[in-house]
Nucleic acid binder design. Structure first.
Length: 263
DNA sequence: ATGGTTGTTCCACAA
């Protein structure tokens, strides 16, 4: 089973790219971020024609997340718990294909001397608390999406370029580690422990993609039960190389069928 | 140090 995540940077602007990706890559589950539309504007018919069910959390203009799956989607939960005042559409979670999946769009947090950065850190605290609760059930789950955090120096093209960027601040990376060290597996890094210059995002500016100047900020974090089934994980750079591309490219992993319990 | 680009909305803001 193939699970992928992709920040499309407007699903309206990216619908041809999305349709081509679904046809070619054939993920069983696709986690989407930055839809930039409301739920009633979601292209459910076009996506349904390709054999995908969808669960969506939208809002006008900004944010927006979705789960697409070839299998039925159930037990949909919209919004990250922990703050009733937070109305950003950044988190959706559901059951599909026998696993729990979440699509998340973590706040960017720039500039760091503004409330945007404290919102990012507060959001990460809530994600940590929610992850703690998910882990108590010992389920197979994946938290996938645009984390807007590069975990380590190897995940950025230039340490200088991100010295004051919220994606690489020590506070952001510490909050990411707090979640990871609960026992989750960064699927890409688990399969490619020594790979360098492996990025998932390249700015539209200054020819960044052509020059290989990117960041690894999109991640698939697996629960222990799902990490046991991890077969492969990689970054698919093809969609980023297209005309009218998103500034992010998909990350995917291949998961084996669950093995029956031996007792 | 600045400006480089894209998307959406309304002529700025977010990334």
């Amino acid at each position: 089973m193939k699970i992928a995540t992709w920040n499309v940077n407007s699903i309206k602007a990216r619908l041809p790219n999305l349709i081509e990706y679904l046809k070619e890559a054939q993920p069983d589950v696709l986690l989407l971020q930055e839809l930039k539309l409301t739920e009633d504007q979601f292209p459910e018919l076009e996506i349904g024609d390709l054999g995908y069910n969808s669960a969506v959390l939208g809002q006008p203009t900004y944010n927006g997340v979705a789960i697409l799956s070839k299998q039925p989607i159930s037990d949909v939960k919209r919004g990250l718990p922990g703050d009733d005042e937070d109305d950003h559409a950044r988190y959706i979670e559901a059951e599909t294909s026998g696993i729990r999946v979440a699509s998340l769009y973590l706040p960017n947090g720039n500039p760091i001397d503004t409330p945007k950065f404290s919102y990012k850190l507060a959001w990460m605290k809530r994600l940590a608390q929610h992850t703690r609760e998910l882990l108590e059930h010992e389920e197979a789950f994946v938290l996938g999406g645009d984390y807007n955090v590069s975990p380590n120096e190897v995940d950025v093209f230039s340490v200088n370029a991100v010295a004051t960027d919220a994606i690489f601040r020590p506070e952001s990376r510490a909050a990411f580690r707090e979640i990871l060290y609960m026992g989750l597996t960064d699927a890409f890094r688990a399969m490619h422990p020594d790979e360098q210059r492996a990025y998932t995002y390249w700015s539209y500016q200054a020819g960044s993609f052509r020059k290989g100047q990117g960041f690894r900020i999109d991640h698939l974090l697996l629960s222990p039960a799902l990490a046991d089934r991890l077969l492969a994980c990689d970054i698919d750079k093809k969609p980023r190389a297209q005309e009218k591309a998103s500034d992010h490219t998909p990350v995917w992993c291949e998961i084996s069928e669950p093995t029956p319990s031996p007792w």
